[in-house]
Simulated assay, not measured.
Amino acid sequence: MSLRGQGAGTRSLVSMDRYLIATVGAMRIAVSAETVAGLLTIAESGSIEAPMVQGQLYAAVDLAARLGVVPEEDGPDTRVILLAQGTARASVRVASVHGLIECEGRRVLPLPRQFRGEERGWYGGLLLFGEGVAIVLQTQWLLGGAEALSSSGRVSQGYSQSLVSNTAAPAVGRGMSC
């Protein structure tokens, strides 16, 4: 028997959550990494509102408008985040992607009491990380915007993309920890 005990590895009893951190307008957001299906550059996504990737249509959600922030002009760091949960699919355009954070679920702070209305359904809390604070967005709210667009018939165009981009922002590969 070794000093390490029965197994060579250790198991954590603390659940870890992963979030993709991005910027929309002047706001940093955090999206559950479990729902991120891929990232596209602007060149890969084009100007089409609803990209089709591997036969799946991702309805475009104007996240800046839904959050009430002024969107930034598209630049070299602009990405389209593809989101999927079950059969619901959406795509959101962000000014930049800062990276992937893995942290304990308790590190997501609850919303302050000033958030009393419908915004409690939009935001899941505040995530503190090395560079500042990001607002955790509720997955159901994000994907709900895509479902509303689909049911209204506004998502009618799409284009086919064979593979999800392997070219992501440099920070995405690094990962961060909180």
Results as ranks from 00 to 15, higher is better:
A60F: 12
A60W: 13
A60N: 14
V61C: 07
V61G: 02
V61M: 10
D62A: 06
D62F: 06
D62T: 03
D62P: 09
L63H: 07
L63Q: 07
A64V: 04
A64Y: 10
A64I: 05
A65G: 10
A65M: 12
R66C: 08
G68W: 07
G68V: 02
G68I: 07
G68E: 07
G68F: 03
V69T: 13
V69A: 04
V69N: 05
V70P: 00
V70L: 12
P71D: 01
P71F: 01
E72K: 12
E72H: 10
E73K: 11
E73C: 06
D74N: 11
G75C: 06
G75Q: 04
G75H: 05
P76T: 12
D77A: 11
D77P: 00
T78E: 03
T78C: 01
T78D: 01
T78S: 13
T78F: 01
R79K: 04
R79T: 08
R79E: 00
V80L: 08
I81Y: 00
L82C: 05
L82I: 10
L82Y: 06
L83R: 00
A84K: 14
Q85V: 11
Q85A: 13
Q85K: 13
G86L: 01
T87F: 08
A88P: 00
A88H: 09
R89K: 12
R89T: 13
A90E: 02
A90W: 02
A90D: 00
S91Q: 04
S91L: 03
V92T: 07
V92W: 00
V94T: 09
A95M: 07
A95G: 06
V97P: 02
V97T: 15
H98G: 07
H98F: 09
G99A: 09
L100S: 10
L100Q: 09
I101E: 10
I101D: 04
E102A: 15
E102Q: 14
C103P: 04
E104Y: 12
E104G: 11
G105M: 13
R106F: 14
R107P: 00
R107N: 12
V108S: 00
V108W: 04
L109G: 01
L109E: 11
L109M: 11
P110V: 09
P110Q: 06
P110H: 05
L111T: 08
